[in-house]
């Protein structure tokens, strides 16, 4: 039983690319769900158009990666408009239903044989991220920071990733202290009141959906570049639920909630995962109860339980302030 390696794994996950990806997705959800009260349950759809935006641009059209970033962002804006136009005038649940449906549509289309030439079908696409790693200033093969070990490429990815997380967090911090942010927070409270004061609530909700969706696309960029391949089944609805769990863990409608939430989320996830695997491989747990492949499934179950317990007992997250909470009504 090697508790040391369990902890090492957990710390690596807490600062690693997964934490970056989910922090980015959760920042977008924080704007939409935390501040504006929009139920976007298709954040993975935005991540998918971001990821495929660069992958298809580079591998199919032969454009540069940087053009691909623009394509991904543009695609996320189009997606937000498409989903927002019909639903933002309706009850909040409609957006939830339509976004989750859209994210499944995108995955099914991406993995379909019909669009195989563009998206690579269920195998996905790879070999598009070279221009990013060409810029890597870290020449060493391996870098160690206490328990965390990173290759030069991973370190470069993580550096840029956390830099973007920091920049977006700062941007949201400024925005939510502006009159623009005030309108969003007011919409979350009572849309009719906002309308009765002369603000176009519909258009503000649309802006929130678009900008949060673009952040989802940025999460998709990070996902695609960090893994150097896109596979459609990595973009299933579980991604969105993980991002929600991270956001609510850290505290919705708080500045650092999505970032802290994602770090803690991945720490806990890696911790339970390596702990269970250690126990299984050392035969501390009988095969009848849990096998190697079932560890991953137990991990998902824990995410589900965690999400429920948080929403029931601490909907403001572990650091959030109950008084400012958006969700208790």
């Amino acid at each position: 039983m090697d508790l040391r390696s369990v902890l090492d794994n957990s710390f690596s996950a807490a600062v690693g690319v997964d934490a970056v990806i989910y922090a980015l997705a959760a920042i977008g959800l924080n704007l939409q769900f935390g501040y504006t009260g929009l139920l976007n349950f298709g954040q993975v759809g935005f991540a998918a158009v971001g990821a495929y935006g660069i992958a298809v641009s580079v591998t199919y059209f032969g454009w540069s990666l940087w053009v691909g970033l623009g394509v991904g962002l543009a695609a996320s804006v189009v997606l937000a408009l498409l989903l927002g136009l019909p639903t933002l005038r309706l009850r909040a649940d409609y957006l939830a239903i339509v976004t989750i449906a859209a994210s499944e549509i995108i995955r099914l289309v991406a993995r379909s044989v019909t669009f195989n030439d563009y998206t690579g079908g269920s195998a996905g696409l790879s070999a598009y991220a070279d221009s990013f790693y060409d810029l890597n200033p870290y020449s060493g093969a391996r870098y160690s920071f206490g328990p965390v070990q990173l290759s030069g490429n991973d370190l470069w990815m993580v550096t840029v990733g956390w830099g973007v997380v920091l920049a977006l967090t700062l941007m949201l911090w400024v925005l939510m202290r502006s009159p623009w942010g005030r309108v969003l927070k007011a919409i979350r409270e009572d849309e009719d009141a906002v309308r009765s004061l002369g603000k176009n609530a519909y258009w503000y909700k649309m802006q929130s959906l678009i900008i949060g969706g673009m952040m989802g696309a940025v999460a998709g960029f990070a996902f695609a570049i960090a893994k150097t391949s896109v596979q459609p089944d990595n973009y299933s609805t579980d991604f969105t639920f993980f991002a929600y769990a991270a956001l609510i863990l850290g505290g919705a409608a708080t500045t650092w909630g999505p970032v802290v939430g994602s770090i803690i989320f991945w720490f806990l996830l890696a911790f339970t995962d390596s702990l269970l695997r250690q126990l299984v491989s050392n035969d501390k747990l009988p095969e009848a109860i849990i096998s190697g492949t079932q560890v991953g499934q137990v991990r998902f179950m824990l995410v589900g339980i965690g999400l429920v317990l948080l929403m029931v007992f601490r909907p403001q997250g572990i650091f959030g302030n109950k008084r400012e909470l958006a969700l208790d009504e």
Partner: peptide, 18 residues
Amino acid sequence: KLAAPDQRGENFFRALVP
């Protein structure tokens, strides 16, 4: 403050520059 009309900072891009 929410109710005041014609606020410059209600535009997304201008909101970014306090």
